[in-house]
Protein backbone atom coordinates (compact mmCIF):
# COMPACT_ATOMS: atom_id res chain seq x y z
CA UNK A 1 0.00 0.00 0.00
CA UNK A 2 2.83 2.34 0.84
CA UNK A 3 4.13 1.89 -2.71
CA UNK A 4 0.80 2.94 -4.16
CA UNK A 5 0.78 6.08 -2.03
CA UNK A 6 4.36 6.82 -2.96
CA UNK A 7 3.53 6.42 -6.62
CA UNK A 8 0.46 8.61 -6.40
CA UNK A 9 2.40 11.23 -4.42
CA UNK A 10 4.78 11.61 -7.34
CA UNK A 11 1.94 12.39 -9.75
CA UNK A 12 -0.42 14.38 -7.54
CA UNK A 13 0.15 16.73 -4.63
CA UNK A 14 -1.10 14.57 -1.78
CA UNK A 15 -1.57 16.76 1.27
CA UNK A 16 -2.28 14.30 4.03
CA UNK A 17 -2.17 10.53 4.44
CA UNK A 18 -4.15 8.83 7.20
CA UNK A 19 -4.05 5.12 7.91
CA UNK A 20 -7.33 4.11 9.49
CA UNK A 21 -6.53 0.42 9.93
CA UNK A 22 -4.69 -2.35 8.13
CA UNK A 23 -6.78 -2.17 5.02
CA UNK A 24 -8.04 1.41 4.90
CA UNK A 25 -6.18 4.59 3.98
CA UNK A 26 -7.32 8.11 3.32
CA UNK A 27 -5.45 10.69 1.29
CA UNK A 28 -6.34 14.35 0.86
CA UNK A 29 -5.84 15.97 -2.53
CA UNK A 30 -6.64 19.45 -3.84
CA UNK A 31 -9.99 19.97 -5.51
CA UNK A 32 -8.55 20.35 -9.01
CA UNK A 33 -6.76 17.02 -8.86
CA UNK A 34 -9.54 15.01 -7.18
CA UNK A 35 -11.19 13.36 -10.17
CA UNK A 36 -7.84 12.98 -11.93
CA UNK A 37 -6.51 10.99 -8.99
CA UNK A 38 -9.69 8.90 -8.84
CA UNK A 39 -9.32 8.12 -12.55
CA UNK A 40 -5.63 7.34 -12.05
CA UNK A 41 -6.40 4.94 -9.20
CA UNK A 42 -9.09 3.22 -11.21
CA UNK A 43 -7.16 2.81 -14.44
CA UNK A 44 -3.57 2.35 -13.27
CA UNK A 45 -3.72 0.93 -9.76
CA UNK A 46 -6.70 -1.40 -10.02
CA UNK A 47 -9.13 0.29 -7.63
CA UNK A 48 -11.97 -0.71 -9.89
CA UNK A 49 -14.74 -0.88 -7.29
CA UNK A 50 -16.44 2.33 -6.21
CA UNK A 51 -17.77 2.04 -2.65
CA UNK A 52 -19.35 5.36 -1.81
CA UNK A 53 -19.27 9.11 -2.08
CA UNK A 54 -19.95 10.87 1.20
CA UNK A 55 -19.82 14.36 2.59
CA UNK A 56 -19.02 15.96 5.94
CA UNK A 57 -19.86 19.50 6.91
CA UNK A 58 -16.96 21.40 8.55
CA UNK A 59 -18.96 24.47 9.38
CA UNK A 60 -16.21 26.03 11.52
CA UNK A 61 -13.73 26.23 8.65
CA UNK A 62 -16.42 26.81 6.06
CA UNK A 63 -15.67 23.66 4.07
CA UNK A 64 -17.40 20.53 2.84
CA UNK A 65 -15.29 17.41 2.84
CA UNK A 66 -16.12 14.95 0.07
CA UNK A 67 -14.80 11.40 0.29
CA UNK A 68 -14.57 9.11 -2.74
CA UNK A 69 -14.04 5.67 -1.25
CA UNK A 70 -12.50 3.13 -3.64
CA UNK A 71 -11.84 -0.54 -3.18
CA UNK A 72 -9.16 -2.79 -4.62
CA UNK A 73 -10.88 -6.16 -5.10
CA UNK A 74 -7.64 -8.13 -5.49
CA UNK A 75 -5.58 -6.66 -2.69
CA UNK A 76 -8.66 -6.18 -0.49
CA UNK A 77 -7.79 -2.62 0.50
CA UNK A 78 -9.82 0.57 0.59
CA UNK A 79 -8.51 3.99 -0.35
CA UNK A 80 -10.50 7.13 0.30
CA UNK A 81 -9.79 10.34 -1.57
CA UNK A 82 -10.74 13.37 0.47
CA UNK A 83 -11.43 16.72 -1.13
CA UNK A 84 -12.28 19.97 0.62
CA UNK A 85 -14.55 22.35 -1.22
CA UNK A 86 -15.93 25.72 -0.21
CA UNK A 87 -19.16 25.74 1.70
CA UNK A 88 -20.47 28.88 0.03
CA UNK A 89 -21.86 28.06 -3.45
CA UNK A 90 -20.54 24.55 -3.07
CA UNK A 91 -19.78 23.01 -6.44
CA UNK A 92 -17.85 19.98 -7.59
CA UNK A 93 -17.14 18.36 -10.92
CA UNK A 94 -19.48 15.50 -11.69
CA UNK A 95 -17.88 12.05 -11.70
CA UNK A 96 -20.78 10.12 -13.17
CA UNK A 97 -18.76 9.18 -16.25
CA UNK A 98 -16.39 7.11 -14.09
CA UNK A 99 -19.05 4.95 -12.48
CA UNK A 100 -22.73 5.36 -13.37
CA UNK A 101 -23.90 4.95 -9.81
CA UNK A 102 -22.08 8.10 -8.73
CA UNK A 103 -24.94 10.05 -10.28
CA UNK A 104 -27.24 8.78 -7.54
CA UNK A 105 -24.78 9.75 -4.81
CA UNK A 106 -24.56 13.17 -6.35
CA UNK A 107 -28.33 13.50 -6.36
CA UNK A 108 -28.33 12.69 -2.67
CA UNK A 109 -25.57 15.21 -1.91
CA UNK A 110 -27.38 17.85 -3.90
CA UNK A 111 -30.50 17.21 -1.88
CA UNK A 112 -28.97 16.82 1.57
CA UNK A 113 -26.12 19.35 1.40
CA UNK A 114 -26.95 21.51 -1.58
CA UNK A 115 -23.73 20.74 -3.41
CA UNK A 116 -24.04 21.39 -7.11
CA UNK A 117 -22.64 18.90 -9.61
CA UNK A 118 -23.00 20.47 -13.06
CA UNK A 119 -24.05 18.07 -15.85
CA UNK A 120 -24.85 15.23 -13.51
CA UNK A 121 -27.89 13.33 -14.86
CA UNK A 122 -31.24 13.89 -13.08
CA UNK A 123 -29.46 15.90 -10.41
CA UNK A 124 -32.42 18.02 -9.40
CA UNK A 125 -35.00 15.22 -9.26
CA UNK A 126 -36.12 14.70 -5.69
CA UNK A 127 -34.62 11.54 -4.23
CA UNK A 128 -35.99 11.35 -0.70
CA UNK A 129 -37.29 14.82 0.11
CA UNK A 130 -40.21 15.56 -2.15
CA UNK A 131 -41.04 19.22 -2.09
CA UNK A 132 -38.41 20.32 0.44
CA UNK A 133 -38.50 24.10 0.82
CA UNK A 134 -35.97 24.71 3.58
CA UNK A 135 -32.17 24.78 3.62
CA UNK A 136 -30.74 21.31 2.89
CA UNK A 137 -31.28 19.30 6.07
CA UNK A 138 -27.87 17.73 6.49
CA UNK A 139 -26.12 21.09 6.72
CA UNK A 140 -25.17 21.72 10.31
CA UNK A 141 -26.78 25.13 10.47
CA UNK A 142 -30.17 23.44 9.98
CA UNK A 143 -31.83 23.00 13.37
CA UNK A 144 -33.78 19.74 13.09
CA UNK A 145 -35.41 19.88 16.53
CA UNK A 146 -36.76 23.37 15.92
CA UNK A 147 -38.02 22.30 12.49
CA UNK A 148 -39.73 19.24 13.99
CA UNK A 149 -41.41 21.28 16.71
CA UNK A 150 -42.74 23.64 14.07
CA UNK A 151 -43.88 20.91 11.67
CA UNK A 152 -44.65 17.49 13.08
CA UNK A 153 -46.92 17.90 16.15
CA UNK A 154 -44.47 16.53 18.73
CA UNK A 155 -46.01 14.79 21.71
CA UNK A 156 -46.29 17.22 24.61
CA UNK A 157 -44.30 16.17 27.65
CA UNK A 158 -42.11 13.71 25.82
CA UNK A 159 -38.74 13.21 27.49
CA UNK A 160 -35.78 11.10 26.55
CA UNK A 161 -33.21 9.31 28.67
CA UNK A 162 -29.65 8.38 27.95
CA UNK A 163 -29.91 4.60 27.65
CA UNK A 164 -26.60 3.93 29.41
CA UNK A 165 -27.25 5.89 32.57
CA UNK A 166 -30.94 5.02 32.64
CA UNK A 167 -30.34 1.28 32.51
CA UNK A 168 -27.61 1.61 35.11
CA UNK A 169 -29.96 3.39 37.49
CA UNK A 170 -32.72 0.87 36.91
CA UNK A 171 -30.73 -2.35 36.96
CA UNK A 172 -27.77 -1.61 39.24
CA UNK A 173 -28.84 1.21 41.55
CA UNK A 174 -26.20 0.41 44.16
CA UNK A 175 -23.11 0.71 41.99
Amino acid sequence: MQEIIERISKVFSVEEVVQQNNHQWFITVPKKQALESVTYLRDREGFVHFVLLSCADWIESGKFQLTYLLNHPVKKIDLGIRVFIDRENAEMESAHYLWEQIATYQRELYEMFGINFPNSPRLTDPLLLEGWDNIPPMRRDFDTLKYVEKTYFPTPGRKSNDPGTYMKEKLYPNE
Binding site: T144, Y152, P154, R158
Partner: peptide
Amino acid sequence: TINGGMYYDSYNTINRLDH
Protein backbone atom coordinates in the same frame (compact mmCIF):
# COMPACT_ATOMS: atom_id res chain seq x y z
CA THR B 1 -45.93 6.00 15.28
CA ILE B 2 -46.91 7.04 18.82
CA ASN B 3 -44.50 9.88 19.56
CA GLY B 4 -41.72 9.66 17.03
CA GLY B 5 -39.64 7.17 19.01
CA MET B 6 -35.95 7.50 18.44
CA TYR B 7 -36.63 9.60 15.36
CA TYR B 8 -38.50 12.26 17.31
CA ASP B 9 -36.14 15.02 16.07
CA SER B 10 -35.64 13.80 12.54
CA TYR B 11 -36.32 16.32 9.81
CA ASN B 12 -38.23 13.84 7.68
CA THR B 13 -40.26 11.47 9.85
CA ILE B 14 -43.63 12.26 11.36
CA ASN B 15 -44.10 12.17 15.11
CA ARG B 16 -47.71 11.23 15.70
CA LEU B 17 -49.56 9.09 13.23
CA ASP B 18 -53.04 9.89 14.55
CA HIS B 19 -52.78 13.40 13.16
